[in-house]
Design a binder for these strands. Structure first.
Lengths: 166, 166
DNA sequence: GTTTCTATCCGAACAGTGTTCGGTTAGTTT
DNA sequence: AAACTAACCGAACACTGTTCGGATAGAAAC
């Protein structure tokens, strides 16, 4: 027996390394990313495998974290949120940035990232209306250490989806 | 019989007006927006109704378009896409904007909006690496009528979700 | 070459969930 | 009062998700 052991699936899993994805995996991921309500019978027809085989693969993809979960896509407008805006907030200190991260528990905040470049924090906000956006904006601007806020108010959305598997 | 007829559910549906959402609807929506794999039995416990009652409500919410569908959330990094960037493209003509909209069929493009303000189009791009972003950027910049491109390269993502039902 | 181990697949059986149905209640309009 | 609608429930049904044992193929170990 030499020093190089066989790398089994269990060992790989312990290292949190996902298995390599073949074309079948990517087809399944693409199908589920577009519509997660598809049955295993449907998926099995798409990739020409049996339902249990597809089930095994999906199970592995979930275990490895490639599939992080399944969520319902809601219509923001029909929920009463009509105004989508991206804010780029320029801060002067780390503590100011930290204060901004606290806004992630607001209902109108959908995304919150730190970014390199001119700004420091990027926020995707879906407000009820212009009034709701205004009060949110003023709250941000009044924070200690916030130098400037650039607003990109969305007119039309042409695409909104998650990562594509290839 | 006076001129005002009763507005039934069928009539309202024909007008594409969603029914008003009560607290139970919003609880269900919140639960499904966080995890769409929850069973009706689980949901029924959350809102203190029977499974068929929850089923009826979900059916209505789907029919009215409040629930647009269910999708699998994929891990961009584990798919090999490590670099998330927001681009704000400033264009000088409508035809240039139209050309930008064609980029919505690219695998690395996740969102594409037209925006008011300084820029005209906002694109969320998940590229494989810096090299992939660079080639994408150069393709955009070389388009006729593109005046400038502002890039916001994401360092860390703290929140990424869909619209919240209040 | 042989053995052993792993990953992957399949068909069949099982368990669990989704879905439909009839009946009841409550509220509103005629 | 009568008629209609919306909403709920329990029970039954149909379907899908899931597990199981067995077969195959490939890689590593001997």
């Amino acid at each position: 027996m030499d020093g190089l052991n066989k790398e089994t699936d269990v060992i790989r899993q312990a290292r949190h390394q996902p298995a390599e994805l073949d074309q079948i995996d990517r087809k399944i991921l693409g199908a589920l990313a577009a519509d997660a309500s598809r049955s295993y019978a449907e998926l099995s027809k798409i990739v020409n495998l049996s339902a249990p085989a597809v089930h095994d693969r999906v199970k592995r993809l979930k275990r490895d974290g490639v599939i992080k979960g399944t969520v319902a896509k809601l219509d923001g407008c029909k929920l009463g949120r009509t105004l989508l805006t991206f804010l780029v907030v320029d801060t002067s200190s780390y503590s100011a940035t930290r204060n901004l991260l606290k806004f992630s528990d607001r209902a109108e905040v959908e995304e919150l990232h730190t970014v390199a470049g001119d700004g420091c924090v990027l926020i995707k906000v879906r407000a009820v209306d212009t009034e709701g956006l205004e009060s949110f904006l003023m709250e941000i601007q009044s924070l200690e250490g916030v130098r400037s806020v650039r607003s990109y108010i969305t007119l039309s959305t042409f695409l909104e989806r998650g990562p594509a598997p290839e």
